[in-house]
Amino acid sequence: MAEDTKLVYKYLRHDKKFPHVWCPGCGNGILLGALIRAIDRTGLEKDEIALVSGIGCSGRLSVYVDFNTVHATHGRALTFATGIKLAKPKLHVIVIMGDGDATSIGGNHFIHAARRNLNLTAIVVNNNIYGMTGGQYSPTTPYGALSTTSLYGNIEQAFSIAELAGMAGASMVARGTVYHASLLDELIEKAILKRGFSVVEVISHCHTQYGRKNKLGGAVEMLRWQKDSAVRLEKARSLSQEEMEGKFTIGVLVDRDLPVYTQEYRKVREAAKKMMARPS
């Protein structure tokens, strides 16, 4: 624990930007810890990291950490990240988004970033709700769930963020929870080091909005739900469909090597230079 505190001290803008805005018990704090531990393990310098976040409770994360940070516009974090990465490929660009941020207003950017396979790390905090605006349903709110804009029960079907990312062409897709914090450290570390577009879906909780509205208890009860519902990939393989009912898998779901955008663009530059050198 003492080790952890030291790390947090090293990476946080502790003297500048605290206290933070999150509710006590929010999963965003656990994610922040996991992110710091993961980055520390990669051995990257603070200067080598650009952290871009969207708008939402999760989006506030970028202000607290001592990297090159951008708090972008709602849904557009990946587009800012794309520009940063292309302009300075040596930077490791990590993007933090909420579920609404990444898959609703930013859904188009999300699938295209995955398809393009730029070397970015996208962390999507899935708390099943629009937290910051006070608990409206999001694209990951389960069917039937209550929210301040689905008072009669949500009639829409939810996205699976991880599956969406995989289908759209991401090089690596992982899912973790804020309950399984040490697994989360590993998944984020792996995602940062992966060449290509990597996505970590982080199952989190918003007890203040989603939990309260749906009578799921406080942070502790919602964390317990994560513990009980998450099944490690290795174990999930041996379970039947019925046994997996109401549960979800965690671990590295997709890991493949695909052509990376910046690498491909290098070929474009070479071709262009050859063309320019030709006498006209």
Binding site: N68, F80, I84
Partner: peptide, 8 residues
């Protein structure tokens, strides 16, 4: 968005 990122 990308233009802003590149400029940063």
């Amino acid at each position: 968005g990308a233009v802003i990122g590149a400029s940063l």
